[in-house]
Design a protein around this nucleic acid. Sequence first.
DNA 1: GAAGTATCGGAACTCATAGTTCCGAATCGT
DNA 2: ACGATTCGGAACTATGAGTTCCGATACTTC
Lengths: 197, 197
Amino acid sequence: MRQPVGRPRDGRVDGAIAAAARELLAEQGYAQLTVDAVAARAGVGKAAIYRRHPTKQAMIFAAVMHDLELETPPDTGSLATDLAAVAHVIATTLSTPPPGVVPGLLADVHADEGMAAAFAGTFVRAERECVTEVLDRAVARGELPSRPDPARVHAMLLGSIFAWLFLLLEDPARLDTLANTLASDVARLLTGKGDGP
Amino acid sequence: MRQPVGRPRDGRVDGAIAAAARELLAEQGYAQLTVDAVAARAGVGKAAIYRRHPTKQAMIFAAVMHDLELETPPDTGSLATDLAAVAHVIATTLSTPPPGVVPGLLADVHADEGMAAAFAGTFVRAERECVTEVLDRAVARGELPSRPDPARVHAMLLGSIFAWLFLLLEDPARLDTLANTLASDVARLLTGKGDGP
DNA sequence: GAAGTATCGGAACTCATAGTTCCGAATCGT
DNA sequence: ACGATTCGGAACTATGAGTTCCGATACTTC
């Protein structure tokens, strides 16, 4: 594996593009973002952008996913509290980007085969691992007899929060409360134990 | 309220626009749809389209929502089966449009204040009424002591199905199974009774 | 060093398309 | 008949994605 010939890419350019894109996303909104504006803000030629990303959508995808850290929360000792931690991670991930970015990105993901694969392989996969890990812990503790389908649990957690924010357009201020009750609901569902509705 | 002067609008034009838009959406996909193509397919001038819809996005929104019937399913006798019926209505609504249309429309809704209001006032409101009605029935039957927050139940049902289809990119063939287990899960959650996980 | 290659910022360019405007003809109320 | 608004159709403007070229720079290879 030799280093390729020619002038190597300047790593700072990648960072400048991502930073400029995120800034403009926050300032102007998703639909108003133009590649020229990103290039100007980053102090970079448009060619440098298209050398790194095949389309504008891929550039935004990379910029938004860039500083997206999805680590499995530490073991809190019980399924209910573990699920609450995961729910809060998901809630933070979805509510952090500027308005319109998450729905816009999702539309782009569904319009491009490659981006769909990237989305499934990064965001979905990382979140799924969190869910699976938390469920495995509960099985190890003896809270659960066997591991439920992680996909179904994932759908409930991610879906409810996504729907709250982007489908039902409910109050984001009540997001923390939703995440908590949601986690306890799912825990109750899986263990069969009732803390009462 | 008198009829306005001038030539009245031809009602068939509205239908032709909506039909052409839905056809092209199915044939070419959301991102490839152009207003010129819709006008040509509908046998209509572009001016006729923009006389009815302020933007391309609003035209698509109207076309997709046009034949969207969201009626509350009939009383099936129990909360669990009622919820299953609602879940299947939601699943059908989300899986019927051509690929990419639902995410694309959602992005447009979040990019325009007016469309967001229309979305909340039609789709969300109609679905919410279904959920509320089903919960009220359960209270009347004595299955539930009091009515839970419809928004939370709605978020679980709609969110889980949406996530399955558009976030987790799971197999749409398993959608019916998901809707059924989801409904029984939510019913178990609300009543506190356990049919076992 | 010299040659070759890929990068850089920047500018100019092509092309697709959203939205507007105008046309002559048709259809309504007054 | 007259005025207002519609119709299909075509021409037009404006914007922005993506491409191409430029001279300069940085790196590998010979």
